[in-house]
Structures are given as C-alpha cells and as structure tokens.
Design a protein around this nucleic acid. Sequence first.
DNA 1: GACTCAGAAAACAACAGACT
DNA 2: AGTCTGTTGTTTTCTGAGTC
Length: 265
Amino acid sequence: MNKTNIEKLIMLVRANKKALPYVNIDSNGNYAGWVSDFHIVDKQTGKSVCLNLACPQDRFILFAIASCWSRSGAWENGAYFGAYLKSLHEDPFTYWMDKNKIAEEKEKSSKVAEQIEQNGGLKPRKKVAFRSDFYDSLEVLAKNWESIEKSLKNSERQNDYMIFIDCISSMKGLGAGKRTMKIKIPLILRELRIQNIYENIPGKWCCVPDSRVIKAAKSDIFAIDLPNYCTTIPAVLKASERIYNLFTDLYDLPLFAFKDIEDLF
DNA sequence: GACTCAGAAAACAACAGACT
DNA sequence: AGTCTGTTGTTTTCTGAGTC
C-alpha cells in the first residue's frame, strides 16, 4: 500500500472538485453525498436535481438508483433515471404498484431518456438509455417498501445495520433479472448517513467496492489489498471497511474519481 | 473458508450492409 | 433516404470451479 499516493489522491480530488461532477464537497470540505446534487438540470425548476432523504418519496428514488447501478451499463444511465423519477412528481408507492403504468413507462422509456439527456449538466459518455428491467425493480421496491423501512428503523433501534443489509440483500429482482443487490448497498447507507436520516449508520459499511473503485485501489499507484471482485456480502463489507479506514468520510469517492484524474499523477 | 480468475450473462449502442 | 437485420463492441455484475 502506498500511503503517499493515497494522500496525493485525496488532495487532487479536493483540488479538482469543480471539474468532477460527482464530487460534491461542501464549503466545510465535507463530502455532501452523491444525491445532494445530480448535476442534471430539472427543466421545470431550472435547478439541479437533488434528493432530500427526509422525504420517503426521495428515499425511494435513492433505492431505485442503487438498483439501477446493480446492473450492467454506464453509471450515467442510473443518474439520469433518478432525475427522471424525480421529475415525474408521482407518488412512487402507488404509481409503481400499477402494472399498466409500468407498461406505459417501459413503452416510452427511450423517448424520455433522450429528452432528459438534453437537460444538460452531466455529460454522459454514451447515449442515455433506461433498461426495461429498471422498471420491474421499481415494482419490487414499491411492494416491499414497508419492510425495507421497518428494517431500517429496527437497525437504528438495535444499533445493528446487518438487519437492513440482510433484508435488502435477500430481496430478489433488485439486480438484473431475479438477482439481488449487493455491491451498491453501501451506497444507500452512505447517502442516508450523510443526510443523517438514521442514527449510528457505521461509516465502515458505506464504501462501494464496485469494479471502478477496485480497479483504482489495486493499481500499482495505490496497491491497496482488495479482492478482484466482492462475491458475498461479508466480502463487500470487508472491502468497504478497508476503504473507509483509508479515506474516512470521503468514502470510496477518491478511488471512484481516480480514472478521471489519473493523468495528474 | 476466503480468495481468485475466467468466462457467462444481460441489455443495449454503434456500426455495416441489404433491401425497399 | 429511410428502414430493417445482423454483427460486434461496451459496460458492469454474477457464477462456479479452482487455489491457497
């Protein structure tokens, strides 16, 4: 492990925050979370999309984004999908229980994806597309919403977030096909922790060890000891803890950013 | 039992060529 | 010029056999 380069990475991420759309660092130097600013403009309000996780409707969108990111495809698609959900102004818990609405939304997905891409802000590397199975996951989330919220409240009460992790990681259909969500679970915990929605969410379980982060961590420049891919929940949590020990409340952000600033090394 | 790695899987983008 | 069809490439996660 190369401590000097790790410190250099943190310094470079902070110095280049304006050039990196996902680096939301506030005036106090604290990471404000990804959903605090999508860097995608809402044409109705003219403002950049963000989520207030104190609202259940916005919490739903956070889970939706995490589910989108539990599949293959460019990460920008999930970001734009979240922005689209926000622009709908529908109550997700009734809207996405309706099979007809889901079919309608699938039908027009390529059209709305094209429209929202033109809203400006975040520059996608490729044409924005909403996978049809994104919508199936929304139904899964809506149907299971009560038990998800209950597991979070129980985790807070018993000071044990494994209760939530067990709940969300066993829910089929939040990944591709009938698969489950795994690697993006820390993302949900991270955003909830940053906005202080529940008490005592451990920071060590808030780092996302996805392929982009792992690739950066394992490169010769940092030589951080991590598995190539986290195949189980314990492996995800272990990797998350290692990342947290190095970057604390910047979480996986510096490693995620590495690819965009590697030329500066 | 934890980790590693190659390949599978999934959905779509981008492109090329054939046909109307 | 437009549309259709098939091929190849991209992106990311998941699986399962093998290794330490």
